[in-house]
Nucleic acid binder design. Structure first.
Length: 507
RNA sequence: GGGGCGUUAGCUCAGUCGGUAGAGCAGUUGACUUUUAAUCAAUUGGUCGAGCGUUCGAAUCGCUCACGCCCCA
């Protein structure tokens, strides 16, 4: 059957099916509002947030409010409703929190009060009145004016259990946010984290920049890109997999300290740790080394944990990671030997020996892989998951680090590290390769690997080589995955819990 | 790609051995002027994810598919 055809009829059916008794009744109520006047008023003046009032009057007891008339106006969504004949309580929720409203027929008048009783949970209302404390001590607004500002046509999820269907929480995040304090807190925390990071780099005189997301040559990482097409230019383009090569062009241009916080796109599978678009910070500092970056990273994460959590002890899924301790620094090969007591240095020092180890571990080894790549596969398989406390892994093979500066004493490895916390890669940094001729050779090697069948290998970027040929100062740069960091700091098991609208298969 | 689990009222969930659908919340009606998931009484609401099959009979058993969650690659 033809897809367009079925889609058309399906959409119509869905709309009819989606209607039910509850929605129909609310539509009727809205219809009555339309007849009575302006159904969507926009003249309510909200002066206070619920949480601000709760905090400001925290100390004052019930009698105090009898002597002091505090007039307020608040607005928000009706979350709970308790009608008791001629008086009612509702709990409204605004962006800051919740506050209770007391409505009496005596104060509102019969007409408004009768209409108030027909308002539903989910409706958005504006309330004016005077603060008091109830017998049980809850701060409450005694309403003398009440206005329905927006009629909600759809019933909210169950008031006690909330929305627990994961799929619906991701697909209809707005509903998840209405119902779940926890979800709101996670995203408030995410905002604080990003804000702290931005401030951290601004304070150190880094300049925030924006570089292309649409790229003709997708560079800066080894990953499969999303492809698109520019009609006017009639060229294929790619969504960026990393901003790296552009940021380093800026260092060539003389911006010594730059950073960018933005989205990268990688055309790969979805999992609890992978979303096709994710947020990274990349930062570059001229005249710095990868050692400096490790120090900066420790400062950043420690300060961040204190700022957003108030402690350096980060609890994640039942484990506790202490950001106060100096982060371990250990090389790729040392870490392999540390976590594989049956191996000795010779087992991973030559191509043939390493291949044998890899095959033993059940790793599928491609013909074109060199020793460095195989070491990394062994690392991924046997070490990564075990790096729970913050750990810098150093001395990455040049073979898997096409943009990193070669080590002065050992040209098999680079001046590079990755940071692992909770068994996950959080950051990746290195002293930058600023030798244009070496970079050109490494690109060529990548192209050869692409030809050999590695569709994640890099393209040759001639303009980037040209930029390096003008001279890039000695520089170090790093990328940190924001989503994974937010997962850690909010104790979220899935990346979908820290991305407002995670990618899902269309309904 | 492979495996496990799930999909029942707007929401949260039951559903026995295969005998034709249940609760709580929400809604509606009534009572109730300081409640706290308000309470009390009555009551509406279902293409049991979709399709095919087995059967006299399927939410239930089998197969296929869709979507989701988790684990593995």
């Amino acid at each position: 059957m033809s897809k367009e055809h079925s889609q058309n009829t399906e959409n119509q059916e869905v709309e009819v099916q989606d209607e039910n008794q509850l929605i129909a009744l609310r539509r009727e109520k809205l219809g009555e509002m339309r007849e009575a006047g302006i159904a969507f008023p926009n003249d309510f003046n909200r002066e206070f947030y619920a949480a601000d009032l709760q905090k400001k009057y925290e100390e004052f007891e019930k009698p105090w409010f009898n002597d002091n008339e505090i007039r307020v106006s608040v607005a928000g969504r009706i979350m709970l409703k308790r009608v008791m004949g001629k008086a009612s309580f509702i709990t409204i929720s605004d962006t800051s929190g919740r506050i209770q409203v007391y409505a009496q027929i005596k104060l509102l008048g019969e007409e408004v009060y009768e209409s108030f009783k027909t308002w539903d949970s989910g409706d958005i209302v504006g309330i004016e009145g005077v603060l008091f404390r109830t017998q049980t001590g809850e701060l409450t607004v005694k309403a003398d004016k009440a206005q329905l500002l927006t009629k909600s046509l759809r019933p909210l999820p169950e008031k006690f259990h909330g929305l627990s269907d994961q799929e619906q929480r991701y697909r209809q995040r707005y509903l998840d946010l209405i119902m779940s304090d926890e979800t709101r807190d996670t995203f408030k925390m995410r905002s604080k984290i990003v804000s702290y990071i931005r401030r951290f780099f601004e304070d150190r005189e880094f300049m925030e920049v924006e570089t292309p997301m649409l790229q003709v040559i997708p560079g800066g990482a080894t990953a499969r890109p999303f492809e698109t097409h520019h009609n006017a230019l009639d060229i294929d383009m790619y969504l960026r997999i990393a901003p790296e090569l552009y940021l380093k062009r800026l260092v060539v241009g003389g911006f010594d300290k730059v950073f960018e916080i933005n989205r990268n796109f990688r055309n790969e599978g979805l999992s609890t740790r992978h979303n096709p678009e994710f947020t990274m910070i990349e930062f570059y500092q001229a005249y710095a080394t990868f050692h400096d970056l490790m120090d900066i990273t420790e400062d950043l994460l420690r300060g961040l944990a204190i700022d957003v959590l108030g402690t350096t002890e980060v609890s994640y899924q039942g484990e506790v990671f202490d950001f106060a301790k100096t982060f371990d620094r250990i090389s790729v090969t040392d870490s392999i030997l540390k976590y594989n007591s049956d191996l000795n240095a010779d087992n991973i020092a030559s191509l043939d020996a390493a291949k044998a180890v890899a095959k033993n571990l059940g790793i599928h080894v491609e013909e074109y892989w060199g020793l460095g790549k195989i070491q990394m596969e062994i690392f991924d398989e046997t070490v990564e998951k075990k790096l729970l406390n913050p750990t810098f892994i150093t001395e990455y093979p040049a073979e898997v680090s096409p943009l990193a500066r070669r080590n002065d004493d050992n040209d098999f490895i680079t001046d590079r590290f990755e940071l692992f916390i909770g068994g996950r890669e959080i950051g990746n940094g290195f002293s930058e390769l600023n030798d244009a001729e070496d970079q050109a050779e490494r690109f060529q090697k990548q192209v050869a690997e692409k030809d050999a069948g590695d569709d994640e290998a890099m393209h040759y970027d001639a303009d980037y080589i040209r930029a390096l040929e003008y001279g890039m100062p000695p520089t170090a740069g790093e990328g940190i995955g924001i989503d994974r960091l937010v997962m850690l700091l909010t104790d979220s098991p899935s990346i979908r819990d820290v991305i407002l609208f995670p990618h899902m298969r269309p309904e």
